[in-house]
């Protein structure tokens, strides 16, 4: 299997003296959706910031498609699209302009941009709002803008931080279906979430984070085995292993 994202023994955090992440190692391969699972404050968003290159690991390496960010920042960044937890929009740009400027930044050809953008707008039912400003958008619409901007790039690797928050059911469905489609085409997807029932249904593998450490990782079957809970669902396993952890 081809590795798209590799984290090896990563320690990280805002201050060297007080690391938040401890020895994090996991991979995301092609044709795979990996769920990054953890409670609030488990270190999911910090892990993602390190992957994006917004924070630097104190120790260990992070590679996207075999490259580190220090080696070639442009090539590294171009491989991945990010869907943030809170939508980060430019208040002075219309929806269409958001898509356009993103496509420009990632060197998508103008023709590809037009075709993909129109299609995405239709799929996420936002064609009518094409020339609206974010001021008039609900939380869910804002999230859709971020999702569309990410899909527009057709990168190898998607990093999604709690992508469902605020989305309506149709939006969630479109998002997940497209994610699966991308996976089947050979993309890798890392999705952080604490909505475990959805994660269980759509993710191929899981990484459990707790207090900045990887608690467990593997497919659902592997996790059931490791926890000694055959047939249990993701919720139960997660609660059981984190409880165990706090008792220690």
């Amino acid at each position: 299997m081809e590795r798209l994202l590799e984290l090896e023994h990563v320690d990280g955090g805002y201050q060297r003296t007080r690391p938040v992440l401890h020895d994090i190692s996991f991979n995301v391969n092609r044709h795979e959706i990996v769920g990054l699972i953890g409670l609030n404050g488990a270190g999911k968003s910090t892990t993602i910031k390190h992957i994006l290159g917004l924070m630097e690991p104190h120790r260990g390496t992070i590679k996207v498609d075999g490259q580190t960010i220090a080696g070639s920042p442009d090539a590294y960044r171009r491989q991945l699209a990010y869907i943030p937890e809170t939508p980060l929009l430019y208040e002075e740009l219309t929806l269409w302009e958001h898509l356009e400027v993103t496509a420009m930044a990632y060197s998508i050809s103008e023709e590809d941009f037009q075709n993909r953008a129109e299609e995405l707008l239709k799929e996420f039912r936002m064609t009518k709002m094409k020339n609206w400003f974010p001021d008039h958008f609900s939380k869910g619409m804002r999230q859709k803008v971020m999702i569309m901007s990410a899909f527009l790039l057709e990168p190898k690797l998607y990093i999604a931080d709690e992508p469902f928050v605020g989305l309506d059911p149709v939006g969630i469905k479109s998002f997940l279906e497209r994610m699966q489609e991308m996976r089947d085409q050979g993309c890798g997807i890392l999705m952080s979430t604490h909505i475990l029932s959805t994660a269980e249904k759509y993710c191929d593998r899981f990484v459990f984070l707790d207090q900045g450490r990887v608690l467990m990782q593997g497919t659902l079957l592997e996790l059931q085995e490791q926890a000694g809970m055959p047939g249990a669902d993701l919720d139960d396993i997660y609660v059981a292993v984190t409880e165990e952890d706090t008792h220690e």
């Binding site: 420009m104 930044a105 990632y106």
Partner: peptide, 19 residues
């Protein structure tokens, strides 16, 4: 024009005129 080099020209134009 539509080009990677112009991303900030694009953004600043809109910031200047609209916000």
């Amino acid at each position: 024009s539509y080009s990677r080099r112009n991303v900030y020209k694009y953004l600043f134009a809109r910031a200047f005129l609209r916000s």
